[in-house]
């Protein structure tokens, strides 16, 4: 009976498909779990985005559409502030471009992993690429902090070289599209539900913005920025940006975000250039090697 044979191969294929599907599902769920804490942290922020949009005069549909189509919390909130202040479209778009320009960098970092994927994956993961998704995609790849071993700089150098060689490979095979999709989609859905809550609550509660929901933004960003401050130039960048942002806020300068960010970036860049941050670190190592060499 030829029918049974066909059934057998079908069954085998089904089993293979099942195993693959199971792996995909597991990766997806892993991504979902990884982004869950960040999704919870973003709820107050989403509520704020929804309620603030209503308060400024957007319709409920427009308020939800901001989260559904733009899907960029900080750009949305800053734009809402500018719409309220009556700022023109051009300035809103330039500011949006500046706020969102960090995504160029995230895409740059993920380019080797995502650009070989089929178009629908590139478009999908591209649309879902947020600070949070980038954080969880890079989390498992974060290099361990090197422990300086001043007694044996030579050895340290050799080990440094070794890890340098290993890292690109381990980065490549650790990227899992289903993991990223699970994380990205979970965050997208969470953000939109939170916005919806804000729209619903905003219609019944006045001045939701005064409940202090904006602290959630500050807390999330502090948690994302602090671990990136690994070099003096980044510290300079953060301090300059912080100081100017505060000054601009005190004097109610509309372009404050633009001024503070660009100045911070410029200051960090200039400091790194002037102090030869990259080169100096390597010469320091050489100096160490030399001095110990002379002593022994």
């Amino acid at each position: 009976m030829p029918d049974t044979n066909v059934d057998d191969t079908n069954a085998a294929n089904d089993m293979l498909d099942n195993r693959e599907a199971k792996q995909k599902r597991q990766s997806f769920i892993k991504g979902l779990l990884a982004v869950l804490p960040l999704t919870i942290a973003v709820i107050p922020w989403g509520i704020l985005a929804g309620s603030l949009a209503l308060e400024i005069g957007l319709t409920a549909t427009q308020s939800q559409a901001m989260s559904a189509i733009i899907f960029a919390g900080s750009a949305q909130l800053v734009a809402l502030g500018m719409i309220k202040a009556g700022v023109g479209l051009g300035s809103i778009l330039i500011t949006t471009l500046l706020i969102t320009s960090r995504h160029l960098l995230y895409a740059m970092a993920l380019r080797t992993q995502i650009s070989p994927l089929p178009l629908k994956w590139r478009l999908g993961l591209g649309f879902l690429l947020t600070d949070e998704l980038f954080a969880i995609s890079n989390h498992s790849q974060a290099p361990a902090r090197s422990k300086p071993d001043s007694l044996n700089p030579q050895k340290e150098k050799q080990e440094g070289l070794k890890t340098e060689k290993q890292s690109p490979e381990s980065q490549r095979h650790k990227f899992d599209r289903w993991y990223a999709l699970g994380g990205g989609l979970t965050f997208y859905i969470g953000w939109n539900i939170a916005t919806l809550l804000g729209i619903i609550a905003g219609q019944s509660i006045d001045n939701l913005g005064e409940l202090g929901l904006d602290f959630a933004i500050a807390a999330t960003f502090i948690a994302l920025v602090v671990p990136t401050v690994k070099k003096p130039s980044i510290l300079i960048c953060v301090l300059v940006s912080l100081t100017l942002a505060v000054i601009c806020a005190v004097f109610e300068i509309q372009a404050g975000l633009l001024i503070a960010s660009l100045s911070g970036m410029g200051a960090g860049f200039a400091y790194a250039k002037l102090s030869n941050e990259h080169k100096r670190m390597t010469t320091d190592e050489k100096a160490k090697v030399n001095s110990t060499g002379e002593q022994s």
């Binding site: 960090r102 160029l104 740059m108 970036m265």
Partner: peptide, 15 residues
């Protein structure tokens, strides 16, 4: 560009 994430995030959170 490598300074954009810390600079922009800080400029949003500081005020």
């Amino acid at each position: 560009l490598s300074y954009s994430a810390p600079a922009v995030l800080t400029a949003i959170l500081a005020p």
